[in-house]
């Protein structure tokens, strides 16, 4: 199994990369971690004429926090994400996910930008970023634009990034006091795409009331899904098992899984329910100071 020929470019700036993408509209594809793309090329499902390798663009791999955001550079490896002490301390949803993506060796190469912008509903980070209300910085020939994660995923492999654009930064709003987050993945084995993955963020006040929440779902629809009704429902509720169970049902109803070797639709929908409830509980425990 060997990939087809292509022309290979190694830009040293984002502008240069975007220029190449713009020049070869549609024929060029960004090579970041390559852990999905190269496999697809070997299977000859993807045959891009041009690969634009962005791995040598300096200052694109970082995890840092300022007063507004956690900022993750697009070529940050997913392994780095879960190793980051800032992420572990304040964005556990991302370190949870960072430990569940594919397998440890793939995580050494796979990038956050690739995982987020590939548009594969089986990728784990989009659900987390939907839950966290993240936004994406996107460079194009006409400049930079910022798009919220919610609304970004249009269809399988189709996102708001145009063929002449490139995602450069993932921004996660800094969590305020009382925030807890978690990601859970049900998988058949290490390296599998999720049967279902759930990312949850909750903010509670000192009385334990949920101020607001966000729930993202992995691999139970054509794209990663933001469970709007479930998330909205939680706002203003007092934490109880019954409340979480109700939210879980709403999340289940937001999912639209396809049957596959992992199971049929009714099973997958029920798993959305179960894992939403469990992940919310974990996020709430964290919000209240637990691990």
């Amino acid at each position: 199994m060997y990939p087809p020929n292509f022309e290979y470019y190694v830009p040293s700036t984002v502008e240069e990369a975007v220029g190449l993408l713009d020049q070869h509209q549609g024929d060029a594809k960004i090579l970041a971690g390559g852990q999905s793309l190269i496999a697809m090329m070997k299977l000859r499902l993807a045959q891009p004429a041009i690969l634009v390798d962005i791995n040598r663009i300096p200052n694109l791999a970082y995890v840092r926090e300022d007063d507004k955001f956690l900022r993750i550079g697009a070529t940050t490896r997913t392994a780095e994400l879960s190793r980051s002490t800032i992420v572990q301390a304040r964005y556990p949803i991302l370190s949870d996910a960072g430990r569940e993506i594919a397998d440890p060796i793939v995580r050494n190469r796979g990038t956050v930008g690739g995982n987020v912008s590939h548009g594969d509903p089986g990728n784990d980070l989009p659900a987390c970023l939907l839950a966290m209300g993240a936004e994406f910085e996107i460079h194009g020939p006409k400049g930079i634009r910022t798009l919220p994660a919610r609304g970004f995923y249009q269809d399988t492999f189709v996102t708001s990034v145009a063929t002449n654009e490139m995602m450069t930064e993932i921004r996660v709003p800094r969590p305020g006091a009382g925030t807890g987050s978690a990601y859970s993945k049900m998988e058949r084995k290490v390296g599998d795409f999720a049967t279902v993955g759930v990312g949850a963020r909750v903010v509670v006040d000192s009385s334990g009331k949920i101020l607001n929440a966000g729930i993202g779902l992995t691999n139970v629809g054509p794209t990663a899904i933001y469970a709007t009704a479930a998330s909205d429902f939680l706002a203003g509720k007092t934490d109880s098992d019954a409340v979480l169970a109700q939210a879980a049902v709403l999340a289940r109803d937001a999912s639209a899984p396809s049957p596959d070797n992992r199971g049929p639709v009714d099973f997958k929908k029920d798993m959305v329910r179960i894992w939403t409830r469990r992940t919310l509980r974990k996020a709430l425990d964290r919000a209240k100071g637990g691990k």
Binding site: Y8, V10, Q35, I105
Partner: peptide, 11 residues
Amino acid sequence: PVKSCMFLAVQ
């Protein structure tokens, strides 16, 4: 560690 069948020599 990288999987050398998912990695181009030019990289």
